[in-house]
């Protein structure tokens, strides 16, 4: 059996959780893996909570929905924490935005990483980078995809944000490394 990552990214609009998921699937596809990305959609997207299901696998993907048995649970705000953490798989991993979520994951067998992404982003001077910082932490811990697949020319970053945003890559690389560093502190 190959490896399958069943990922859920959730937060509120503006935290970039959709883009976070997209970066993973573009990179995964580039690496020849099977991938899928399913967004929540509709009125709740407008200023409310947003989430996406992401699967990266060595095998063809059956159900693309990750709403139960979540292997990698990324929660960026408190409502998402309450909604999704209980759905974590018994050997799952949770990434918590500890800047704005003070609660702790208390499920036997489930490992949690508390990444203060807002604080790190503020230190870096760009509050919008919270999703990239979180991505850095995820990749550092789970090696779902290579960092290079994100940032290389024509890579995931350019696909998701447009080639015109390539100039932002150096700053985002730093953000990603800061996220990885924060994750290492939890490991």
């Amino acid at each position: 059996m190959g490896k399958t990552f069943r990922i859920s990214c959730s937060g509120f609009g503006g935290q970039g959780v959709m883009a976070l998921g997209k970066l993973i699937v573009y990179a995964g596809m580039d690496e020849g893996k099977e991938v899928s990305w399913v967004p929540s959609y509709g009125p709740e997207m407008r200023g409310g909570t947003a989430n996406c299901s992401v699967i990266v696998s060595d095998e063809p993907i059956a159900s693309p929905v990750v709403d139960s048995n979540i292997g990698v649970n990324v929660v960026m705000n408190l409502p998402s924490f309450h909604k999704f953490v209980p759905k974590t798989a018994k050997d799952g991993v949770v990434f918590v935005n500890s800047s704005i979520i003070s609660e702790k994951v208390n499920i036997p067998g489930v490992k949690a990483y508390y990444i203060p992404v807002n604080d790190i982003a503020n230190e870096l001077g760009n509050p919008r980078m919270v999703n990239i910082i979180m991505l850095g932490a995820i990749i550092e811990v789970l090696k779902i995809v290579e960092v290079d697949s994100i940032f290389k020319p024509g890579g995931a970053f350019e696909h998701v944000f447009g080639a015109s945003k390539a100039k932002l890559i150096p700053a985002n690389k730093i953000a990603m490394e800061k996220g990885a560093e924060a994750a290492r502190k939890c490991m």
Partner: peptide
């Protein structure tokens, strides 16, 4: 259905 319409796959 809405799932296939909204999701992304290669």
């Amino acid at each position: 259905d809405g799932l296939i319409g909204q999701m992304m796959e290669p």
